[in-house]
Every structure is written in structure tokens, then in C-alpha cells.
Design a protein around this nucleic acid. Structure first.
Lengths: 152, 152
DNA sequence: AAAGATTGATATTTCAATCTTG
DNA sequence: CAAGATTGAAATATCAATCTTT
């Protein structure tokens, strides 16, 4: 152990990594069995749909999806081939692009949700009591935020 | 949404995936900056150390680490090259192997823990209040278990 | 045929440049 | 030079087939 970490901290950490991995694999598997692409594709489409005008700059997508630049660049390559999204030159800043959601991408989003939501329910939500969903959501949100006031 | 999923269920799911990904990336980054191999190497070494005689069958490691057979096979290849572990023929069952922890692997485990535990503390444990560590650990454990009595 | 494990071919991710514009 | 984005080469992960033993 470590002077700063108690048994429950380590147990929480281990469970976070193992549980996420197991549930995510189960959900991805359900999507694949239904003939759908990976969750990362869904995430791109969803972020674009939530955005104003159905388009975002690559760096905005990277921030929201926690991806590296080069990962996203190649993900967009594949999605562009399938006509789900489309790169567009940016007017304000000639260094940049917009990634735009295409109709086929909007359709895929709609088709995937029934399978995806059922998988989330089966492999994740159904395991907890009602109040625990909010409890878990709040706890995890806390972990994502800075722990202490940023020092100079 | 979906008739079965409420807003908090979806929020919990999203936070689980995003938070795990962000914290894991931060921890992996600290290990790499200290010149250490990825966490998956640590996990293999730790499971072997916890096991009787410091050795396990590949399929036992796969179960404990949630890896596919072929992933582990190649992971062990790399670790064997570094003399951290060693494959040994299995006496009882000639189809199988044992993977044995070597002294160099035991040392690496010891050297990595200070960096690893500090990273868990900084990026994860320090974000929560004392009682919340156990709360989170228990909640996540629940999700890993079967939801209903298995039907026939 | 099933269980334990590995391997060839392919897809994806990662690192380290690279290119273009602000 | 820094920011936005991409790319070649190398590392890793995945799928499907394979091999050996039960």
C-alpha cells in the first residue's frame, strides 16, 4: 500500500478500470452483433448533432471525446468514406476545418440508439437501484474536476 | 431517450466511460514519463505475484485481467523478451503452460508502485471525500455482478 | 469435437515528423 | 514561433484460422 492510499481507494480504482472495461466490451459487442460500427463513431455523430449547425472543428471534437488529434483525423477519414460526415474548409481560419454531420450520419445515429440504449440498460443501468444512478453520476463527475485550487 | 433509461442513468454511463478514460490516460502518462511500461504489464506482474507460487495459466490471467487470449499471448511475448516473466510447460496438461514471475519482474513491480500509487492518489483518490471511496467501490462492484437470477 | 494457446493477415493506435496559416 | 491538422513508420490490437492435446 502507500501512506496516502487506503484499501478502499485502491479497491475503488481497480473496480473503476475493471468495471468500465467489462461493461464497455459488452456494449460494444451488442452493437457489433447488430451490424453497427464502434461506439467512437456514435460519439462523433452525437457530438456533431448536439452542436450548433451540426458541425464542429476537429479540436472541439477532440476535447469533447478525449481523443488525440491524430486519432480523430483517422477516425474522420473512415467516417467520411461511409458518407456519414464531411470535412469542410473553414472560412474564418484557413488553418482549420469543420466536420459536418451528413444525413446518412443522422440516420445511423437514430438506428443505433435502440440497440445502444438497450445495451446500456442490460449491462449497466439494471444493476443499480434507482437512486444509485444519480449517486454514481455525481461521484464520477467529482473525479473529473480539479481537486485543489490551481496554484500559481 | 428510451423508456427504460432515465436521464441520470445515461449521465452515469457517460461519466463512467469518460472519467475512466481521462484518469487512466493521466495515470498511464505518469508511468510513461517515469520510464515505465504500460499498466497492463503491471497488472500481469501483480496477478502473478498474488498467485500461489508466482505462476498462473494464461487462461487464468485472461479471466482476471479481462483480456482476450491473443492479446495476452502477445503481451507475454514482449514481457518474456524483457525477462520479466517466463513460459513453462505444464505437467498436468500438455496443452497448457504456466507463466512464471521472474525476479526482474518482481523488482519492476516494486519500483513501479511508488509512481503508480502517487498517480492514483493525485488523479483519482484525492478528488473524493473519505467515505466516498468505499461508496464508489461498492457501487461499481454491484455493476460487475449478474443483475437477475440466471434463467434456465 | 472441445479446451488451451498461438499465429498470419488486417485494422487501429501511437509517436514523431511535417505541412500550412496566424 | 504557435496553433490546427495530417501523415509515414512502428507498435499494438483484433479477427479468423491453425495447431496440439484432451
Amino acid at each position: 500500500m502507500n501512506e496516502k492510499l487506503c484499501k478502499n481507494s485502491v479497491r475503488a480504482w481497480t473496480n473503476l478500470v475493471r468495471t468500465e472495461s467489462a461493461v464497455l466490451a459488452a456494449v460494444e459487442n451488442d452493437l457489433k452483433e447488430a451490424g453497427f460500427p464502434p461506439l467512437s463513431w456514435y460519439d462523433v455523430l452525437l457530438e456533431l448533432q448536439k452542436a450548433e449547425n451540426g458541425r464542429l472543428r476537429p479540436y472541439e471534437l477532440e476535447e469533447r471525446m478525449l481523443l488525440r488529434q491524430y486519432s480523430l483525423s483517422r477516425l474522420v477519414d473512415r467516417m467520411e468514406i461511409e458518407k456519414l460526415v464531411q470535412r469542410e474548409r473553414c472560412i474564418n481560419d484557413a488553418r482549420g476545418l469543420h466536420i459536418a454531420l451528413l444525413p446518412k450520419g443522422r440516420d445511423l445515429l437514430k438506428q443505433m440508439w435502440p440497440i445502444y440504449s438497450e445495451a446500456i440498460y442490460q449491462h449497466f443501468a439494471a444493476k443499480m437501484a434507482i437512486g444509485e444512478h444519480q449517486l454514481l453520476a455525481d461521484l464520477l463527475e467529482k473525479i473529473g474536476k480539479p481537486s485543489i485550487a490551481p496554484s500559481a
